[in-house]
Design a protein around this nucleic acid. Structure first.
Length: 509
RNA sequence: GGUCCGUUCGUCUAGGGGUUAGGACACCAGAUUUUCAUUCUGGCAACACGGGUUCGAUUCCCGUACGGACUACCA
């Protein structure tokens, strides 16, 4: 295979959607697998929709998930510039070529006139109203107007667009790597605008020209482009690039978790999960949308999860690092059907990856989170706590959430547990433990276990009957890591005072 | 409306003319854990429908239904 060159070509109209991240990921995986190049191209040809900060956001997001760009606006490359707004002249040149060769024409119709045409045709049964071979001779363009009039209009600065002259009825064949051969009659394709009246190209022209010039080998993009792909094939042909045309792969869409339809920000908000990789503040509304990163998703978990939405390796392995994904990835194994976005599975991946972190890494997270709550904790202790908690967390913030109990003594106690488990027997054991626990901090899980063993056998009370009450007294709740370890971390004097407080509040003998 | 694409457990999916249709998430149950979590074991649960083709279709073909995308001087 000749060099694999793929591109991710977002338009800077806002935050990068999670579906966009997946598209970028698939491109990246293919590039890495074949030691090819990953190109970032900014498609900013719509000046009305341009959102400041969006380009930066996209780059930051890609970097966070671990997608490295080989060529793009920042690092440049052999086919710079990589921002379409900076390539205007190039598109103009090819538009002129198409014009000269009779594959395109000038059109002067106003938006009112276009609308009128569509409305007129809409009333006719079965027809789909579009600017095409059947209607263009009724419109104002260089096909219907005399050369003199056209030249005059252009000289006068009358607004015009350049449209592709699509043949009236030919079959265009598109070979899609995921969907196989797709055939469309040109009768269904309209004379798409190639150059807008502001001198900017539309996606259709810019995309074809850039992919050709940048020597893109595979166009991997969302399925929403499939209907216009035949148009692009046609454009390649007209430009004389048919033999250098990239391979196409149209990805199935990400669907909303319940019901039907594509995943939208609205759904995500409703279901309570993020849709953007990073926090995004909408510059118009000033509204903050929380990102996957800030929500506590690890980039490796997110990429693993995303990769499996529409692709699988064909084995039963599910956990893949980004590197492993790169080698395992195959376009042929991408599915055809849209995938519903199941955040529970994402959470599971997150849990799996969080567990691979060392006690030190987890401890660091705990320390900084605690600090935010005004609690100081040294690393060794943080590591111990992290170790005790590591099997119980899904998100990084869970460590501090669950670990707080080691720093903040309970002020109230779970009533249900209290009424069930706080009785003469547990009070006896807990009172004895309070008296006998080594008040110095130097207790270990082993020593405290031995002490408790000693007390329960002496009082002839089965340990199982009092453990719940003991946890209640120590933490105020009914769940948490191993109790002996909990007490060891707490330290003797803290255990003593917490037990004393519990006895005082819940009652004792 | 038109064009195109799609359809295997609730979800992500494997599979493929003859299989007990496999895995994972979620859920449920049991075991372990004194508790919760973990872990382990087990369970629930799917080939949209109707016609063909075939000795045999979930698998191939055609329809239907349902879903989706597109139908802009947006990408």
């Amino acid at each position: 295979m000749s060099e694999v060159r793929v591109r991710f070509a977002p338009s800077p109209t806002g935050a990068l959607h999670i579906g966009g991240v997946r598209t970028a990921l698939y491109n990246y995986l293919l590039a890495r697998k074949y030691n090819g190049k990953m190109i970032l191209r900014i498609e900013d040809t719509d000046q009305n929709r341009y959102v400041p900060g969006a380009e930066e956001y996209i780059k930051d997001a890609l970097q966070w998930v671990g997608i490295e760009i080989d060529e793009g606006p920042d690092m440049g490359g052999p086919h710079a510039p990589y921002r379409q707004s900076e390539r205007k002249d190039i598109y103009q040149k090819y538009a002129q070529q198409l014009l000269k060769e009779g594959h395109a024409y000038y059109a002067f119709d106003s938006s009112d006139e276009l609308e009128e045409m569509r409305n007129r045709l809409k009333t006719q049964k079965g027809s789909n109203p579009q600017y095409d071979s059947s209607t263009r001779m009724d419109m104002k363009n260089s096909l219907t107007l005399s050369k003199e009039v056209v030249d005059e209009k252009i000289k006068n600065g009358d607004p015009y667009v350049i449209r592709l002259k699509v043949p009236s009825s030919e079959i265009v064949e598109l070979n899609d790597l995921i969907r196989g051969t797709v055939k469309v009659s040109t009768a269904q394709i309209d004379d798409k605008v190639l150059m807008k009246s502001d001198g900017m190209p539309t996606y259709h022209l810019a995309n074809v020209v850039d992919d050709y010039l940048m020597k893109i080998s595979h166009v991997i993009r969302g399925e929403e482009w499939l209907p216009s792909a035949p148009l692009h094939v046609l454009t390649y042909k007209f430009l004389g690039w048919e033999n250098e045309m990239p391979a196409f792969a149209h990805l199935p869409l990400l669907l909303k978790p319940d019901g039907k339809g594509k995943l939208s920000k609205r759904d995500a908000d409703q279901m309570g999960f993020p849709i953007f990789p990073l926090n995004w503040v909408d510059p118009k509304t000033n509204e903050l949308a929380e990102g996957f990163k800030e929500r506590g998703y690890l980039p490796e978990a997110l990429t693993n999860f995303l990769a499996f939405l529409g692709w699988n390796p064909g084995t039963e392995q599910e956990l893949f690092t980004l590197d492993e994904l790169c080698t395992a990835f195959e376009i042929e194994r991408i599915g055809k059907a849209g995938a519903k976005f199941d955040i529970q599975k994402a959470n599971w991946f997150n849990q799996q990856y969080l567990r691979t972190k060392t006690d030190e890494e987890l401890g660091q997270i705990l320390m900084t989170d605690l600090k935010d709550d005004g609690i100081d904790c040294e690393l060794e202790k943080a590591k111990t706590i992290a170790n005790a908690l590591r099997e119980r967390i899904t998100f990084p913030k869970d460590i501090a959430e669950l670990g707080k109990v080691f720093f903040i003594a309970p002020t109230s106690f779970d009533e249900k547990i209290a009424s069930k488990k706080w009785n003469d027997e547990s009070i006896a054991v807990i009172t004895a433990l309070k008296e006998e626990v080594n008040h110095s901090d130097a207790i270990t899980a082993q020593s405290i276990a031995a002490l408790l063993e000693n007390i329960t056998t002496r009082l002839n009370i089965p340990q199982g009957k009092i453990m719940q009450a003991l946890r209640l007294a120590l933490t105020g709740g009914a769940s948490g890591p191993d109790l002996m370890i909990t007490m060891a971390i707490l330290g003797g004097s803290e255990v003593h005072s917490r037990l004393a407080y519990a006895i005082a509040t819940l009652g004792g003998k």
